[in-house]
C-alpha cells in the first residue's frame, strides 16, 4: 500500500475521523490526568466496546450501544463515589473487567460480534465512513465548549476542593457532566479507532505535553497538537506498512511519551 491511498474516500474518511478524535481525546485526558482518573478512560472505552458488541448481538445500531454503555459506566462510577470516596478506584477496575468480560464472551459466541470485536480491539480505523466522521465532528462541537465551561470547576476541585462547599454550593453535578462528556467522547472514539488507540490518545499526549507547557492552556494546545500529529503519522505508517492502525498508533504514542520524559529529565532547563 502507499500514501496515494489517502486520497481514496475509503481511507480519507477514516483518516479525518481519527484526526478529530486525536485532537479531542487529549483534551479530555488532560482533565482526567488532573483528577487522577486516567483509568476511567480505559474503563469507559472497554464498556463502550461491550455496548457496541451487545448492540450488534441485539441487531441495534452500534452508534447507540457504545455511548449507552459508556454513559451507564459514568453513572455507576458517580454512584460509587457518592457511596464512598474510597471506592473510586474500585469502580474503574470493576467497570473495566465488566466491559472486558462481556465483550469477550459476546465475541466468543456470536460470529458478527467476533468480527466487530476484532475491529474494536485491533483498532481497524478503516471500517469508519462518512457517518462516523460526522459523529466525530458533532462530538467535537459539543465537547469542546462543554470542556471549556467545566475547566474552571475541575481545576478548582483539584486546587481548592472546598471552594464550592464553603459557598454553600455543590460541584457534584459539574463532575457528573464531565464524566458524561468523557464517556460520550470515548464511546464514539472507541467505535472508530478502537479501545486501546482511544485510551492511548487520552493518556499519552497530555502526559507528553505536561513537561513542556508553561500554562494549562498551552498544555491543552500542545497535547491536542501531539495527538493530531501522532495520528497522522500512525495512519500513514499503518497504510504504508499494511498494519492495523491501533497498535501502530499506540506504539508511536508510547515512544512519544518516553521521549518526552527522557528529554525533560535530560534537559530540565529547556522544559517549562
Amino acid at each position: 500500500m502507499n500514501l496515494e491511498l489517502l486520497s481514496d474516500p475509503l481511507f480519507l474518511w477514516p483518516c479525518l475521523t481519527g484526526l478529530v478524535f486525536a485532537l479531542l481525546l487529549p483534551l479530555c485526558g488532560a482533565y482526567l490526568r488532573l483528577r487522577g482518573e486516567w483509568l476511567a478512560a480505559l474503563s469507559y472505552a472497554q464498556m463502550a466496546a461491550a455496548g457496541s458488541l451487545s448492540a450488534a448481538a441485539l441487531a441495534l445500531p452500534l452508534v447507540l450501544g457504545g455511548p449507552a454503555a459508556a454513559f451507564l459506566a459514568a453513572a455507576v462510577k458517580n454512584a460509587f463515589e457518592e457511596a464512598a470516596e474510597a471506592t473510586r478506584g474500585a469502580a474503574y477496575a470493576m467497570l473495566l473487567l465488566a466491559g472486558w468480560g462481556t465483550a469477550v464472551l459476546l465475541a466468543a459466541n456470536l460470529p458478527l460480534a467476533e468480527r466487530l470485536g476484532h475491529a474494536l480491539f485491533d483498532g481497524q480505523l478503516y471500517f469508519t465512513d462518512r457517518s462516523h466522521f460526522l459523529a466525530a465532528l458533532g462530538a467535537f462541537a459539543v465537547a469542546v465548549p462543554l470542556l471549556r465551561w467545566l475547566s474552571r470547576p475541575l481545576l478548582l476541585s483539584h486546587f481548592y476542593p472546598d471552594f464550592y462547599r464553603a459557598r454553600g454550593r455543590s460541584s457534584r453535578r459539574l463532575h457528573l457532566a464531565f464524566d458524561l462528556v468523557v464517556a460520550g467522547v470515548l464511546a464514539l472514539a472507541t467505535t472508530s479507532v478502537g479501545v486501546m488507540a482511544a485510551f492511548a490518545l487520552v493518556f499519552i499526549p497530555p502526559l507528553a505535553a505536561a513537561p513542556w507547557a508553561r500554562s494549562w492552556r498551552a498544555a491543552l494546545w500542545l497535547g491536542a497538537l501531539l495527538g493530531g500529529l501522532a495520528h497522522l503519522l500512525a495512519f500513514a505508517l499503518a497504510l504504508v506498512l499494511d498494519q492495523p492502525f491501533g497498535p501502530v498508533l499506540a506504539l508511536l504514542l508510547v515512544l512519544l511519551g518516553a521521549a518526552s520524559a527522557l528529554l525533560a529529565r535530560g534537559f530540565p532547563r529547556i522544559a517549562a
Binding site: L34, R152, L155, A210, S215, W216, A272
Partner: peptide, 14 residues
Amino acid sequence: AGIPLNGRELLALT
C-alpha cells in the same frame, strides 16, 4: 507536581 498550571491561572480560578 507535573500539573502545568501557572500562578496567574491559579489566581484566576478563585
